[in-house]
Amino acid sequence: MTVWLVVGGVVQVGLVLLLAPLFEGLMRKLVRARIHSREGPPIWQPYYDLFKLLVKEDTQPAAGWVYLLPSVLCLASVLTASLLVPLFGRGILGEQGDAILFIYLMAASVAAVVLAGAMSGSPYSSVGFAREIMMTLTVEPVLIMALITAAIDAGSLDLGAMAAWHSAHGPSLSMLIAAFALLLSVQAQVGKLPFDVPEADQEIMGGPFIELSGPKLALFKWAFWAKQLVLAALLVQVFVPWPTFTLGLAGSAALGAALCALVALVKVLVVVVVVAVVDAVNPRLRLDQAMAYFVAVIFVAGIGLILAFVGT
């Protein structure tokens, strides 16, 4: 069993790492560039970017492994979170962790960004991580409330159980509202416009990331691309788990699983495309405007929560 866990974990982490830049590349070329009416970079560009950054010299203010910590922490927490997402019935670490752990891991990835910002003495960085904290205060509750809604529905904190309950009971109003709220928060979680306030290249030149270079920057980029995938997968698997083929079309479980994976992939792609389109057609909001927006989203998520208590 442990061996199976390790092998499965390694395979899934590897897949997330490999696929995350591909999704980003597809979005850049097929969505962003298309909306911009331009040719656009090759689909493989994010891989080239990562490779370039990884082999680049790493300039840092002082020697010490501690400066590497934030970027590693960020990527590690996102990858660990990916193991909790129920892809085939239950996440690989579904036994070991539940929704609470997932929320903690997401918060850890944000904390890593704040940490990176705090390690730099640049005023842009200070403004950036202060903004990151403020944004998290309004964005994180949306994720928490959405998961609690699902937990109430399913009567369990286990992500796999939530998925199973949703797929068994069909769509409910509370779940749809929670899914919608979560979809709105993905944009901010992965630092896309109009909510890339903490990075805001044109205002504070990347904020917390301003002094990061080479491998550290690569890990952060990779982590954000992976996070987009993980959140999208969570959204579609837990909240929109249909159609399911677990019963198998011709009685073949393997075919059912393959179809499941394909459908999941398509659904994830849809979420990522939505995120990319919203990113392309909006200007950046100011911090206060973005927070006001998410306060409204929290309100909506709250309605979902109440409905879940009521049982619809």
């Binding site: 560039a33 298309r34 909306i35 911009h36 009416s37 331009r38 040719e39 057609v281």
Partner: peptide, 11 residues
């Protein structure tokens, strides 16, 4: 969006 898509790729 309409403006964008109608223009096609121009580069």
């Amino acid at each position: 969006a309409l403006i964008c898509f109608r223009a096609g790729r121009v580069t």
